[in-house]
């Protein structure tokens, strides 16, 4: 039996191409880029960029939406790269991932308490609150697929956690793409409905973590 193992070792070490540095991170980046391209096409074809995009990019609110989503997504992409490796711990980066939300939540509360009661409902609900999380879920889905493809080709050993983080990452980046189509302008809306959309993708990722099993 052991002789067979020796043969195996022999043939494994006979076939030994160099490994490029940061190969794992690059694979995650590739998966997210491919998924991101599909997400962007989906957004362009289905929802279209907001008509006033040229003016919107001059406003801080646009960048707050885009920045919140993109920052969360990028931080979680870093966490995902760690979790795609054996013996990985999420690390401090996982704690950092809640920082963008903390900033947005603080601004949302500030905005909310300064708003007269009769306008508060509109502030929270905007005009697309029932659509927003679902759209983020749909637009982030190709990214989740890309993330799962990337991670299952590496070696995750904590699949549930990796699935949740992959979903959160796809949710953040997907929401950033959605921000190009969305014309909501309130911080409370962002804090609630964008976050809900990202969490929906995180849960989806957790449910799909079986797909990350590797042999």
């Amino acid at each position: 039996m052991s002789a067979k193992t020796d043969d195996l070792i022999q043939s494994l070490s006979a076939d030994l191409p160099k490994v490029a540095p940061r190969a794992a991170a690059r694979r995650v980046a590739l998966g997210l880029s491919l998924g991101g391209a599909a997400s962007a096409v989906l957004m362009l074809a289905w929802l279209h960029p907001r008509p006033d995009l040229a003016q919107a990019v001059m406003t801080p609110m646009f960048w707050m939406k885009f920045g919140y989503a993109a920052a969360t997504g990028l931080i979680l992409a870093g966490v995902l790269t760690r979790l795609a490796k054996p013996a990985a711990r999420p690390g401090v980066l996982a704690t950092v991932a809640v920082a963008p939300f903390a900033v947005v939540a603080l601004m949302a509360v500030g905005r909310f308490v300064q708003t007269p009661p009769e306008a508060q409902h509109a502030l929270l609900m905007g005009h697309s609150s029932m659509l927003c999380p679902w759209r983020i879920l749909a637009i982030g889905a190709p990214m989740l697929a890309g993330a799962i493809w990337a991670v299952r080709g590496l070696a995750p050993t904590r699949l549930m956690l990796a699935g949740l983080v992959a979903g959160g990452c796809a949710g953040g980046l997907g929401a950033a793409i959605y921000a190009i189509a969305c014309n909501e302008t309130s911080a409370p809306f962002l804090a609630i409905w964008y976050t809900l959309g990202m969490m929906a993708l995180a849960v989806t990722g957790g449910l799909a973590s079986r797909l990350m099993r590797w042999r």
Partner: peptide, 20 residues
């Protein structure tokens, strides 16, 4: 021994996930 071999193969094919 099957598990030993499977693990060796995984170590080999997934060696890019080892951090220096």
């Amino acid at each position: 021994e099957d598990l030993v071999q499977e693990t060796l193969i995984a170590v080999h094919t997934r060696r890019a996930t080892y951090d220096v």
